[in-house]
Design a protein around this nucleic acid. Structure first.
Ligand SMILES: [Mn+2]
Ligand SMILES: [Mn+2]
Ligand SMILES: [Zn+2]
Ligand SMILES: [Zn+2]
Lengths: 138, 138
DNA sequence: GCCGATATTTAGACATAGTCTAACTGCGCC
DNA sequence: GGCGCAGTTAGACTATGTCTAAATATCGGC
């Protein structure tokens, strides 16, 4: 299965991450590596199927796992029953809307967290602030 | 179904929270309201069944939900595939051990978070720092 | 270009957390 | 004692995620 391109940048990105750019992987990457949403695996599957109806659920799950292992995505667990994927792999914080469940990024510099290095007896790998509440009506 | 007591304090606590203290609810409360763990619903079920073998899974789920609605517990989602319950309802932060999955409380005063009130366009209900890493070998 | 080896994809079975339903139990009140 | 209701129960059902075994695509050597 080959794909007419415009996808060269995406293919390069996968190859730089040591991932063979199969058609399915490029299709999945095309959505998930550039979204500002924080989609679940099934969200990604639904979206990719629009352009690529034959892609299987297993392939989407496997591919998201692969991208995560190769540092292109992060997995987040912020709400019940759903792992979501985040293409912003640099440290940042998150806001979770109580009403809609939407997850939004908060830039690292927008909040200030102190004294993490004073925690006793732990080697910290990462940390983030999770803010919950409501987006204000405009 | 009646239960020999020593449970009067627990019964009072449920009644103060406007919850009728059935035998099942008292048994569940006896574990979940005083644990330092952050147990899942099925963890609670397994534990309560030791002393109370006939309790059903639905009752445990319903009761934990009820306790949460009445402010005796909080639900946390910090790792995949499992909602956990936390009897410490005051604001605090959490450490998640990458190796064991164990969740530990970090007192509110142990970390310092600034600029949350400067976030634009959101009404903040709560926030916490989630720290991930490894507990250091002693 | 063909061929065997390897990597990837696929459908569907399986596992598990959580929800829902409909029947049953037991207590409070007449 | 019988009625009504809150609470409990077993089990069916749903949804997310994992696993398997077979099919397919790609690659490197010829
Ligand atoms: Mn979704
Ligand atoms: Mn558990
Ligand atoms: Zn993010
Ligand atoms: Zn806690």
């Amino acid at each position: 299965m080959t794909r007419r391109s415009g996808n060269q940048a995406l293919i390069d990105r996968l190859e730089r991450a040591d991932i063979r750019p199969s058609a399915q992987r490029v299709a999945i990457a095309g959505y998930v590596l550039s979204t500002a949403d924080h989609p679940s695996a099934d969200d990604v599957w639904q979206r990719v199927k629009v352009d690529f109806p034959m892609v299987s659920r297993a392939t989407v799950y496997n591919t998201l796992q692969l991208f995560t292992e190769h540092g292109l995505l992060r997995q987040l667990v912020l709400a019940e029953g759903k792992v979501v994927f985040d293409p912003m792999v640099e440290p940042h914080h998150h806001f979770v809307d109580d009403e809609t469940g939407a997850i939004e990024d908060i830039p690292w510099s927008a909040l200030r967290v102190g004294k993490v290095d004073e925690l006793e007896g732990v080697d910290v790998r990462e940390y983030m602030v999770v803010v919950r509440g409501r987006r204000r009506r405009p």
